[in-house]
Measured scan of single mutants.
Amino acid sequence: TEEYEYTDEQQAREAAREWREKGYTVTIEEHNGRWRVKTG
């Protein structure tokens, strides 16, 4: 599992979409105004 943090929701969603296209399972969670994208 890798985790990436973004301050911008749009960036987080874009990144998540790219990971999904590569076949990863992706979770996005908002935490204190930051967006965490977890792949695994």
Rank of each mutant, 00 (worst) to 15 (best):
residue 1 T to W: 15
residue 1 T to C: 11
residue 1 T to S: 13
residue 1 T to H: 14
residue 1 T to F: 15
residue 1 T to L: 13
residue 1 T to M: 14
residue 1 T to E: 13
residue 1 T to P: 14
residue 2 E to Y: 13
residue 2 E to N: 14
residue 2 E to V: 14
residue 2 E to A: 14
residue 2 E to G: 14
residue 2 E to T: 13
residue 2 E to D: 12
residue 2 E to P: 10
residue 3 E to N: 09
residue 3 E to T: 13
residue 3 E to P: 08
residue 3 E to F: 15
residue 3 E to W: 15
residue 3 E to K: 07
residue 3 E to S: 12
residue 3 E to L: 11
residue 3 E to I: 15
residue 3 E to R: 07
residue 4 Y to Q: 07
residue 4 Y to R: 08
residue 4 Y to C: 10
residue 4 Y to W: 12
residue 4 Y to D: 05
residue 4 Y to E: 07
residue 4 Y to M: 09
residue 4 Y to F: 13
residue 5 E to I: 13
residue 5 E to V: 11
residue 5 E to H: 09
residue 5 E to D: 10
residue 5 E to F: 15
residue 5 E to N: 07
residue 5 E to A: 06
residue 5 E to L: 11
residue 5 E to R: 04
residue 5 E to Y: 15
residue 5 E to P: 11
residue 5 E to K: 05
residue 6 Y to F: 14
residue 6 Y to D: 01
residue 6 Y to V: 02
residue 6 Y to S: 02
residue 6 Y to T: 03
residue 6 Y to E: 01
residue 6 Y to R: 01
residue 6 Y to I: 02
residue 6 Y to P: 01
residue 6 Y to K: 01
residue 6 Y to L: 02
residue 6 Y to C: 04
residue 6 Y to G: 03
residue 7 T to G: 11
residue 7 T to M: 12
residue 7 T to L: 14
residue 7 T to S: 14
residue 7 T to P: 12
residue 7 T to I: 12
residue 7 T to N: 14
residue 7 T to K: 10
residue 7 T to Y: 12
residue 8 D to R: 04
residue 8 D to Q: 06
residue 8 D to N: 13
residue 8 D to V: 05
residue 8 D to A: 05
residue 8 D to M: 05
residue 8 D to I: 05
residue 8 D to C: 06
residue 8 D to F: 06
residue 8 D to P: 01
residue 8 D to W: 04
residue 9 E to P: 07
residue 9 E to W: 08
residue 9 E to R: 05
residue 9 E to L: 12
residue 9 E to D: 03
residue 9 E to I: 11
residue 9 E to S: 04
residue 9 E to Y: 13
residue 9 E to K: 05
residue 9 E to N: 03
residue 10 Q to K: 12
residue 10 Q to A: 14
residue 10 Q to L: 13
residue 10 Q to F: 12
residue 10 Q to D: 12
residue 10 Q to P: 06
residue 10 Q to R: 12
residue 11 Q to A: 14
residue 11 Q to P: 03
residue 11 Q to V: 10
residue 11 Q to W: 05
residue 11 Q to R: 09
residue 11 Q to G: 07
residue 11 Q to K: 11
residue 11 Q to M: 11
residue 11 Q to N: 07
residue 12 A to Y: 01
residue 12 A to S: 02
residue 12 A to E: 00
residue 12 A to I: 01
residue 12 A to K: 00
residue 12 A to C: 05
residue 12 A to P: 00
residue 12 A to W: 01
residue 12 A to V: 03
residue 12 A to H: 00
residue 12 A to F: 01
residue 12 A to L: 02
residue 13 R to E: 11
residue 13 R to H: 10
residue 13 R to A: 09
residue 13 R to G: 04
residue 13 R to Q: 12
residue 13 R to P: 00
residue 13 R to W: 06
residue 13 R to M: 13
residue 13 R to T: 08
residue 13 R to D: 05
residue 13 R to S: 07
residue 13 R to F: 08
residue 13 R to K: 11
residue 14 E to F: 03
residue 14 E to L: 06
residue 14 E to V: 10
residue 14 E to H: 08
residue 14 E to G: 06
residue 14 E to D: 12
residue 14 E to N: 11
residue 15 A to T: 06
residue 15 A to M: 07
residue 15 A to Y: 03
residue 15 A to G: 04
residue 15 A to K: 11
residue 15 A to R: 07
residue 15 A to W: 03
residue 15 A to V: 08
residue 15 A to N: 04
residue 15 A to C: 09
residue 15 A to I: 07
residue 16 A to S: 04
residue 16 A to R: 01
residue 16 A to G: 06
residue 16 A to W: 04
residue 16 A to F: 06
residue 16 A to K: 02
residue 16 A to H: 03
residue 16 A to E: 06
residue 16 A to D: 02
residue 16 A to V: 08
residue 16 A to Y: 07
residue 17 R to E: 13
residue 17 R to M: 10
residue 17 R to T: 08
residue 17 R to K: 13
residue 17 R to A: 12
residue 17 R to S: 09
residue 17 R to H: 10
residue 17 R to Y: 05
residue 17 R to G: 07
residue 18 E to C: 07
residue 18 E to V: 11
residue 18 E to M: 12
residue 18 E to W: 08
residue 18 E to G: 09
residue 18 E to L: 12
residue 18 E to I: 14
residue 18 E to D: 11
residue 18 E to Y: 14
residue 18 E to P: 03
residue 19 W to Q: 05
residue 19 W to G: 03
residue 19 W to K: 05
residue 19 W to Y: 09
residue 19 W to R: 05
residue 19 W to L: 15
residue 20 R to P: 01
residue 20 R to H: 11
residue 20 R to Q: 15
residue 20 R to K: 10
residue 20 R to W: 13
residue 20 R to E: 15
residue 20 R to F: 12
residue 20 R to M: 14
residue 20 R to A: 14
residue 20 R to L: 15
residue 20 R to D: 06
residue 21 E to W: 03
residue 21 E to I: 04
residue 21 E to M: 05
residue 21 E to N: 08
residue 21 E to P: 00
residue 21 E to L: 06
residue 21 E to R: 05
residue 21 E to G: 04
residue 21 E to Y: 03
residue 21 E to S: 07
residue 21 E to Q: 06
residue 21 E to T: 05
residue 22 K to V: 04
residue 22 K to N: 06
residue 22 K to Q: 10
residue 22 K to G: 04
residue 22 K to S: 05
residue 22 K to R: 09
residue 22 K to D: 04
residue 23 G to P: 00
residue 23 G to F: 02
residue 23 G to A: 02
residue 23 G to D: 03
residue 23 G to T: 01
residue 23 G to H: 03
residue 23 G to V: 00
residue 24 Y to G: 03
residue 24 Y to M: 08
residue 24 Y to N: 03
residue 24 Y to C: 06
residue 24 Y to S: 03
residue 24 Y to F: 12
residue 24 Y to T: 03
residue 24 Y to W: 08
residue 24 Y to I: 08
residue 24 Y to Q: 04
residue 24 Y to R: 05
residue 25 T to D: 12
residue 25 T to Q: 13
residue 25 T to E: 13
residue 25 T to G: 06
residue 25 T to M: 12
residue 25 T to L: 12
residue 26 V to G: 01
residue 26 V to S: 03
residue 26 V to L: 02
residue 26 V to W: 00
residue 26 V to R: 00
residue 26 V to E: 01
residue 27 T to Y: 09
residue 27 T to K: 07
residue 27 T to Q: 09
residue 27 T to D: 07
residue 27 T to H: 09
residue 27 T to I: 13
residue 27 T to P: 00
residue 27 T to M: 08
residue 27 T to V: 13
residue 27 T to A: 07
residue 28 I to W: 02
residue 28 I to E: 02
residue 28 I to V: 13
residue 28 I to Y: 03
residue 28 I to P: 00
residue 28 I to A: 02
residue 28 I to G: 00
residue 28 I to S: 01
residue 28 I to K: 00
residue 29 E to G: 05
residue 29 E to W: 09
residue 29 E to T: 12
residue 29 E to K: 06
residue 29 E to M: 09
residue 29 E to D: 08
residue 29 E to F: 10
residue 29 E to S: 10
residue 30 E to I: 09
residue 30 E to G: 06
residue 30 E to H: 10
residue 30 E to V: 10
residue 30 E to R: 07
residue 30 E to F: 15
residue 30 E to S: 09
residue 31 H to Y: 11
residue 31 H to Q: 09
residue 31 H to M: 10
residue 31 H to A: 10
residue 31 H to E: 11
residue 31 H to W: 10
residue 31 H to N: 10
residue 32 N to I: 02
residue 32 N to H: 06
residue 32 N to K: 08
residue 32 N to Y: 04
residue 32 N to M: 05
residue 32 N to D: 12
residue 32 N to T: 03
residue 32 N to W: 03
residue 32 N to S: 05
residue 32 N to Q: 05
residue 32 N to A: 05
residue 32 N to G: 09
residue 33 G to V: 00
residue 33 G to Y: 02
residue 33 G to W: 01
residue 33 G to A: 02
residue 33 G to S: 03
residue 34 R to I: 12
residue 34 R to K: 14
residue 34 R to F: 10
residue 34 R to D: 03
residue 34 R to G: 07
residue 34 R to N: 08
residue 34 R to Y: 09
residue 34 R to M: 11
residue 34 R to P: 00
residue 35 W to V: 02
residue 35 W to S: 01
residue 35 W to A: 01
residue 35 W to K: 01
residue 35 W to E: 00
residue 35 W to N: 00
residue 35 W to I: 03
residue 35 W to C: 01
residue 35 W to F: 07
residue 36 R to M: 13
residue 36 R to P: 00
residue 36 R to A: 06
residue 36 R to G: 04
residue 36 R to K: 14
residue 36 R to D: 02
residue 36 R to N: 06
residue 36 R to H: 12
residue 36 R to F: 15
residue 36 R to V: 15
residue 36 R to L: 15
residue 36 R to W: 12
residue 37 V to L: 07
residue 37 V to H: 00
residue 37 V to D: 00
residue 37 V to R: 00
residue 37 V to W: 01
residue 37 V to G: 00
residue 37 V to N: 01
residue 38 K to G: 05
residue 38 K to R: 13
residue 38 K to N: 08
residue 38 K to A: 07
residue 38 K to Q: 08
residue 38 K to P: 01
residue 38 K to S: 10
residue 38 K to Y: 07
residue 38 K to D: 04
residue 39 T to G: 06
residue 39 T to H: 09
residue 39 T to A: 11
residue 39 T to F: 15
residue 39 T to W: 13
residue 39 T to I: 15
residue 39 T to L: 15
residue 39 T to M: 14
residue 39 T to P: 10
residue 39 T to D: 03
residue 40 G to M: 15
residue 40 G to D: 14
residue 40 G to W: 13
residue 40 G to S: 15
residue 40 G to Q: 15
residue 40 G to V: 15
residue 40 G to P: 05
residue 40 G to C: 15
